[in-house]
Deep mutational scan, measured.
Amino acid sequence: KLETFPLDVLVNTAAEDLPRGVDPSRKENHLSDEDFKAVFGMTRSAFANLPLWKQQNLKKEKGLF
């Protein structure tokens, strides 16, 4: 399991300012399950079932792209 970080560490943070080991294209993977659901309004599995373009739009909207 990946290390999780608080939302404010990941949202609207440039790649070079992210904690070590965080993939800038997969910031959402480093949210706790609770934060993930609070941000996206759905579970990880529901998010994973969305088309890629919709996932990317949601990530942009939430500052996690």
Rank of each mutant, 00 (worst) to 15 (best):
V39T: 10
M42R: 01
A15H: 11
F5I: 07
T4I: 15
D23N: 09
L10Y: 01
G21M: 06
L52V: 12
R20E: 15
T13K: 12
L7M: 10
R44D: 00
R44L: 04
L7A: 06
R20H: 15
D17V: 07
A46Q: 13
E61M: 12
M42K: 01
W53H: 09
L18G: 04
E16C: 14
R20Y: 12
L50A: 01
K27M: 15
E3L: 13
K1R: 13
V9R: 12
V11M: 13
S32T: 12
Q55A: 05
L7G: 02
P19F: 01
V9M: 14
N57F: 12
P24S: 07
L2N: 10
V39D: 00
F40I: 02
V9E: 06
E3S: 09
T13Y: 07
D33K: 04
V39R: 01
L58F: 06
T13A: 11
F40N: 00
N12W: 07
K60L: 11
A14W: 06
P51E: 07
F36N: 00
A15I: 15
K59Y: 06
M42C: 07
K37M: 15
V39H: 05
G41Y: 05
K60S: 10
P6A: 07
P51Q: 04
L64G: 02
Q56K: 11
K60F: 11
R26C: 13
L7K: 05
G63A: 04
K54E: 13
Q55C: 01
V39S: 04
F36L: 01
T43D: 13
R26Q: 11
N49A: 14
L58V: 05
A15W: 12
E3H: 10
A48R: 12
L64D: 02
S45K: 12
S45P: 08
G21P: 05
V39Q: 03
L58K: 05
A38P: 00
Q56R: 13
V11I: 14
R26S: 09
Q55M: 04
P6W: 04
K62P: 01
N29S: 10
A14K: 14
N12G: 10
G63I: 01
N57I: 12
P51I: 01
P24N: 05
E16T: 09
R20P: 15
L50F: 05
W53D: 11
F47G: 00
E3K: 11
K37N: 14
K62T: 08
P51H: 03
L58D: 01
D17S: 10
N49Y: 09
S32C: 06
